[in-house]
Design a protein around this nucleic acid. Structure first.
Lengths: 165, 165
DNA sequence: CTATCGGCTGCACAGATTGACCAGTGAATG
DNA sequence: CATTCACTGGTCAATCTGTGCAGCCGATAG
């Protein structure tokens, strides 16, 4: 389940330069090509790497406004609300949470005015009691994984020693 | 800036089966290989597709707990707080927002107990006045982009007619 | 109407990459 | 000591990539 130092370097390398192939990666990492292939296979069947889907920028698609909405749900309506929100394209993700709200979702919209339409569509559903929205102004730290991968690799080394054996 | 129907189908296809190459994609879409290559180049220079980085699952890395923290910042400390949070690997993203909090960040941790350590590290910084955390229990809608891509492609068609001309 | 332009097609080429093998080596295990 | 596992370094055929080309077509400008 955990990753070792080589796995970490491989993931970081792929994250920085996604277009390189297995052969080029093996050259950069200084290992045999078969090793990189085996590691990649293992990381993917492990589920550590889910895939290599295209990273699409909603802003470039015409949806430059992002917001987070905290929703309060009527008891017992959870499943319906999940289905409802799953059907709204502008809902990019949805979590159920502890704390004051019951759900947190990420929304995008074509403009601040359009955000009103999206929010109306999101909350215009029986079962949603209340919603409070926070519009994103700036994104100082875009969604990232590299630092965590590096830390996970280091932690493994610390506990088990560098290398696999 | 907007995408047409073929762009949409291409992105959706790549999102569903990231491993296929340009040639296979052209076969699936029923267009010439050069067309797919040209579209991909354009989508990438447009910034619509940022890249094809590996999609890493924090849970599989040993960080199964996700939380969202709303932070309240002391006036004028924004830049320092951003730098501080940028240095914490468990902070996967950070937004400045309107609304009651000033910032919203996504955190991961190795366990609920470990989350306490992460939160302490995040809020243990002069300039952060208050923090409220919501732990994610379930993720009914994982981060997704396909429905939005499909809608963007349809909207383009509706306004400009299918095809590019 | 006609010339031009951009986008798409179908084709071709050399070069590189992939997936699949294999035998050998070294370290850790029982 | 025999075994197991990961890695190396090599080969093989099949495939894909990047590139360039000529031709076709619809849209646009003069």
């Amino acid at each position: 389940m955990a990753i070792d130092h080589l796995d970490g370097r491989l993931i970081v390398l792929l994250a920085r330069e996604p277009r390189i192939g297995v052969l080029e990666a093996s050259r950069r990492l200084g290992v045999a090509r078969g090793t990189v292939q085996a590691r990649l296979d293992r990381l993917q069947s492990n589920g550590v790497i889910r895939g290599f889907g295209p990273d699409v920028d909603p802003a470039a698609l015409g949806y430059p406004v992002t917001a987070f909405a905290t929703l309060e749900i009527k008891q017992g309506q959870g499943a319906d609300v999940r289905a409802h929100l799953g059907g709204v394209p502008e809902v990019l993700e949805l979590h159920t949470t502890t704390g004051h709200g019951d759900m947190l979702c990420r929304l995008v919209a074509r403009s601040n005015a359009d955000l009103q339409r999206v929010i109306d569509r999101v909350v215009g559903f029986d079962g949603i009691v209340r919603a409070s929205t926070a519009i994103v102004m700036e994104n100082p730290v875009p969604l990232r994984i590299i630092p965590l991968v590096e830390q996970a690799a280091e932690d493994t080394d610390r506990f088990e020693g560098p290398g696999r054996h």
